[in-house]
Amino acid sequence: MKGYEYFDHTADVGIYAYGKTIEELFVNAALALSDQMVNIAHLSSSMVKTLSLSATSEEKLLYDFLEEIVYLKDSENILFSDFKLKIKKEKGHVSLIATLKGDPINPKKQELRNDVKAITMHLFTIEKINEGYKATVIIDI
């Protein structure tokens, strides 16, 4: 099973992310997002961030998680390429604790790509497929 792929969308970029588990799906969606902003092969793990998020559905949690990666790019100037996370479902809530590893943005060391402006809710879905899960995300470039 491939981790993620991009699909054509007129002015923005579409992501299909896959995962055997919901955690793997979140990681692959985050990698797809990061790979739009920087060549993730150029990143190491000099910076570590921990995130704790909670939402009323898995879809909303994924939206918040990806949005946080865009936020950290602008507010703390960090791009990430290593994501480890645990997702817990409780009554009416889904929460995650994630560890993100990456580097400060440095155009001299990294091939920078698109400055992602936002995660959109257009077509945003998580669906169950035979092999696990698939997410559809359109990012605003």
Binding site: Y71, K117, T120, M121, H122, F124
Partner: peptide
């Protein structure tokens, strides 16, 4: 974009209260 993202989430919840449904959540 952050202002839009913040309020998109607020509106997504509030639409139920105002009985509004849209074909595209964006």
């Amino acid at each position: 974009h952050q202002v839009a993202t913040d309020y998109l989430k607020v509106f997504d919840e509030a639409m139920k209260k105002y009985n509004i449904s849209v074909s595209d959540r964006e």
